[in-house]
Design a protein around this nucleic acid. Structure first.
Lengths: 217, 217
DNA sequence: TTTTGGCATGTAATCAGGTTA
DNA sequence: ATAACCTGATTACATGCCAAA
């Protein structure tokens, strides 16, 4: 009820504002919290004209009832879009204005899309981690191969030149330059414009932001 | 803003309704149209309690005026959070209910956060692509090193054993399953739990979904 | 301990501009 | 041309958590 809720003393707790960790909850499926009470087809019949306007108690009804939400959700799962027939049918069954059904679907699609981004992010994050690990492995492999090769070469002076070069550029993790090793040599991809950290031993670490996503600075 | 959309001529909007019927945006008050126009301190003084309830004129003003939005935005840029003083000050200056200012800031933070996720996604995507490229390069390097090594070995039978093994586990890109690969030497290629595509030559491709993100069918 | 206000997050409804049948 | 829809962005309200009073 607060309305211009300002006449209150205030103290707020300004600083340290950025510290809450975000939670994570739902998944693609259905979600709900507390039920706004059962609601049969009641409003449907009522033109819904006068009530409200404060002071009355009869309405406060934002929030659709759980049974209505369930039906809408089920319907949404079947088909993300709404055709006129379905809309009217749902409206009739649930006692809602067709307009409300349409609105619900629009909002639901928007939520779905936002959620989609989250999932995409998680999936990408996983991919990234996998590839990073693989890259790590490959670096190690390259290193050991070069060692072997140079050992080989040590016995066959003919390839000394190669061995030298390779050991030189191996250690640094910013792989790349691989083609140089192959002989063609160019591709100065410049200094890796990317962010992730690599320690002195060539270990690849995921970017710092992979762990903490939300929560603003 | 209410449940049964009663601000609307009962006909609701679905079919057979003329859109011009619900044009209830204009009322003696202010604004509307494109660019809500200047808005002086007007609502601020009004307790804003009983209006509405139909057939009235003093509705609600959705959409803040551009000048109000500008101020709010500027304020937001300075500080993402709102302390009581700032809230009151803005409310006074802009002719808004303090509650509106608080609400605006909350919504604004939510939008900011969503945007943040988008940026994070883009950044991660870029990282991923970079790492994939590097992995690609490393695979090529490993390949060429092995070739060189085996050529070497061809002259020195002693190392034949290694050459064989290595060529076996190199080509396929699904390097990982580390423990299995380590020693037991057998990874079932098929199961790679991650998505990205690798053609028969070990070329790494970004996942299919990197290109098209939003927009559903 | 209980109360209380701010905040993050979820919802419902509205609006503006663009599509499509 | 236009009604019905959509997406995207908004505004406001609802809920639940948390920390300070």
């Amino acid at each position: 009820m607060d309305w211009n809720g300002n006449l209150r003393p205030f103290v707020s707790r300004p600083e340290t504002s950025f510290s809450f960790l975000y939670n994570y909850n739902q998944y693609p499926g259905i979600e709900m919290k507390h039920d706004p009470v059962e609601v049969p087809a009641y409003h449907a019949v009522v033109p819904a004209m006068e009530k409200n306007s404060y002071g009355n108690q009869m309405e406060k009804k934002k929030r659709l009832a759980t049974n209505q939400l369930e039906s809408l959700e089920n319907s949404f799962q079947e088909e993300i879009k709404l055709n006129p027939e379905r809309k009217m049918k749902l409206a009739r069954e649930l006692g809602l204005q067709p307009r409300q059904v349409a609105t619900w679907f629009q909002n639901r699609r928007a939520r779905w899309k936002a959620k989609q981004l989250e999932h995409l992010y998680d999936a990408l994050k996983k991919e990234f981690e996998d590839v990073s690990r693989e890259k790590q492995k490959l670096q190690e492999e390259v290193l050991s191969l070069k060692v072997m090769l140079s050992e080989q070469v040590a016995k066959k002076p003919i390839y000394a030149g190669y061995a030298k070069i390779s050991s030189e550029e191996t250690v640094e993790s910013t792989s790349e330059r691989s083609n140089k090793a192959r002989g063609t040599g160019h591709h100065q991809i410049g200094e890796s414009s990317y962010v992730f950290n690599v320690d002195d031993y060539g270990k690849v670490m995921p970017p710092y932001w992979l762990g903490v996503m939300p929560s603003y600075p």
